[in-house]
């Protein structure tokens, strides 16, 4: 398992590095922007507290893209590189192969997400209470979005021959699911709390499971 994890980490390394860069970029861009507005005075603790809060919202938005790429890359990248046949000739079962891919994507996502959580929930309040005034991302809705994008691109990755197609297909699926969910929530008259985020969560997990089962049973050409 260790070797599989190492291999999947190495395959995803460019995505992971991009994820880290985007993580820093969110804070750097908004921080720089605020500083330019107060130029030449360096912003105070209160302003930084707000900046970090805003940047963590933006950073999380960027993280959805990274998660989409991680999902799209997971299976299709090996197919594109044509290392699948070699991998399948080795003793590990497909379940192990798939688990390793999932773990690498999951760990990367959780670490980047925890980084944002640390900035918004620890660093920002420590600097000043000003940050609390900024609207925060709703946890349920955000998690639903992440699960949906990951599930869709994962499904695309299991089915399609290249990560680019998988990403495109996955995003298209996301858009379709979200529009359907909004349409339903607009039409139904009885009150359903959190229909859209829960719907996204359910759709995402379903897509993930369908993709996984497809991969486990698929006969590679």
């Amino acid at each position: 398992m260790k070797a599989l994890l190492w291999k999947d980490f190495r395959i995803n390394l460019p995505v992971i590095i991009t994820g880290l860069l985007l993580w820093f970029a969110a804070y750097a861009a908004i921080g720089l922007n605020v500083w330019l507005q107060t130029w030449p005075v360096f912003p105070g603790r209160g302003q930084w507290s707000e900046v970090i809060q805003i940047a963590s919202v933006g950073g999380r938005a960027l993280l959805t893209i990274v998660v989409g790429v991680l999902g799209a890359n997971a299976i299709a990248s090996e197919r594109a590189e044509r290392s699948t046949e070699f991998l399948f000739s080795l003793p590990p079962t497909r379940l192990k192969i798939l688990t390793s891919k999932f773990l690498v994507a999951l760990t990367t996502t959780i670490l980047l997400w925890l980084g944002h959580q640390f900035m918004s929930d620890v660093v920002s309040p420590w600097l000043s209470a000003n940050g609390a005034s900024v609207n925060r991302v709703p946890l349920l809705g955000y998690t639903g979005g992440l699960v949906l994008i990951f599930g869709s691109t994962w499904l695309g990755s299991a089915r399609l021959s290249s990560p680019a197609f998988a990403l495109g297909g996955g995003i298209a699926l996301c858009v379709a699911v979200i529009s359907v969910l909004f349409e339903i929530s607009r039409r139904v008259t009885w009150p359903v709390p959190d229909l859209v985020p829960i719907g996204m969560l359910v759709a995402g997990i379903t897509a993930f499971l369908v993709g996984s089962i497809y991969y486990l049973r698929r006969i590679e050409p």
Binding site: E81, R82, S83, E85, F86
Partner: peptide, 10 residues
């Protein structure tokens, strides 16, 4: 295998 394809980056 017939086509010896494997991890090119290794």
């Amino acid at each position: 295998p017939e086509l010896h394809q494997t991890y090119r980056w290794m």
